[in-house]
Design a binder for these strands. Structure first.
Lengths: 234, 234
DNA sequence: CAAAAGTATTATGTTATACTTAATGCACAA
DNA sequence: TTGTGCATTAAGTATAACATAATACTTTTG
């Protein structure tokens, strides 16, 4: 594993700027002072003079911290430490227009990996009410003809419910985060050939497996459900 | 799904600041102009006058974009569009001290979901060289006694290699991102009972499956490999 | 005397300007 | 042709001043 040369931050050209240093300084300072959520930190000018830099630099560094959800600033009250919200940040970045095709493809794969692998969580936490809801969702679907019209909203509703059932909030956040890319993939031309919307295992089939099967049969069913995507990707 | 009230950005107090607007403006501008990686964007002063704001505001907005890996600035050359670096940002924020226990538990589950679900990618892209390398890694491991000493570095090497094999860069980044939490989980007391380090399926067993099995048998083997974790979580 | 209205203060948000630094390109010399 | 050096350019940094909004304080008024 060659991690050398990986640019970890925002500065791809080795330019360790003053703001970078101040950002790190502030972080270690907060750590030293054992600041916890809600605590007010010194005002910008104080930090600036104390660190021997201009207020501009301090502001830019704090802007980054604020962006990472580490602090929150209000007008007169000053700036306070907050609990970081890990994923909200990526959620914003994750809009597909700016992602290159390879990353989109990666994300699409990632989605399938998640849904195939979630079997155990699903079976551990699913309730009969959940299953009923899933049946209700698939009941809305058009009759299972050979090639049903692909309905993206149905798709999202169904698979979204699966994520809900896992009870894993982080997982659900990830799904919400990846969601925008799916529509894009379906509408775009990531796949060479158009996606066949004939499902090997239908949504209804998956619910049946959840009702009567076990994690292992679910994994296989979900894998089969994704068959045409896999064929296109590989 | 109730998305109302979700605080999406960095400004928790509804203060939509000028920088926020300019940030969004710049993004849509880049999108309009169909900028792709490598393209140079107008210089700060131009953008400032064009948008009718001060250079400072433009700079702060661009600082955020740079932080998100969307642009990269050099001294004379100006600022260019780059492929967004989705995850490096979180990687930095993801240090476990600030995550609550539930999130840590969620992340741990997520890891297992990923590794169980990655079977198909693995088999599609694994080479004999990869398998040899995996065998080399497990060869370093202590002899498989009933309760082997749990070696976190071995663990990381082995499972990290699996992520590498998938050839999915996004997936690998996720792993690197989640990595710090694993050590924390093992050292901390997330689990009620101490983790039994006896593996149901050993690392060597997994390699054997990769050599001779298929995605389905791999998923089951990996599930089994995680058995003691599952027992502890559920 | 207490509640409301108004005023002062304060810390962040924003603007403007000037200076510093490093990379690029061009010109001139070897 | 090659290489050195200077001018130029655009980002990085610094400073000062004003705008804005939230808080604290004071005054008015019932």
């Amino acid at each position: 594993m060659d991690y050398a040369g990986i640019q970890h931050g925002q500065q791809q050209h080795e330019q360790v700027t003053l703001v970078d240093k101040v950002e790190a300084d502030l972080l270690s300072f907060f750590n030293e002072q054992q600041f916890k959520a809600g605590d007010v930190i010194p005002k910008e000018v104080e930090l600036a003079t104390q660190l021997g830099v201009s207020r501009t630099v301090v502001r830019e560094a704090m802007l980054r911290l604020r962006m990472r959800g580490l602090i929150d600033s209000k007008k007169k009250r000053g700036t306070v430490i907050t609990n970081p919200d890990l994923l909200s940040l990526i959620e914003k970045t994750m809009y597909p227009g700016i992602l290159d095709d390879q990353t989109l493809r990666d994300i699409f794969e990632l989605r399938m990996v998640l849904e195939i692998g979630m079997g155990d969580l699903l079976f551990e936490r699913v309730t009969q009410a959940d299953i009923d809801e899933l049946y209700a969702i698939v009941a809305d679907e058009p009759v299972n003809t050979e090639k049903t019209i692909f309905n993206i909203d149905q798709e999202v509703r169904f698979h979204g419910k699966l994520y809900d059932i896992t009870g894993n909030e982080t997982l659900r956040r990830f799904q919400r985060m990846l969601l925008p890319t799916f529509k894009y993939v379906h509408e775009g031309d990531i796949f060479k050939k158009p996606v066949q919307h004939k499902k090997f295992v239908s949504h209804r089939g998956l619910v049946d497996v959840i009702q009567h099967g076990n994690p292992e049969t679910f994994r296989n069913a979900m894998r089969n459900h994704f068959e045409n995507y896999f064929q296109r990707l590989f």
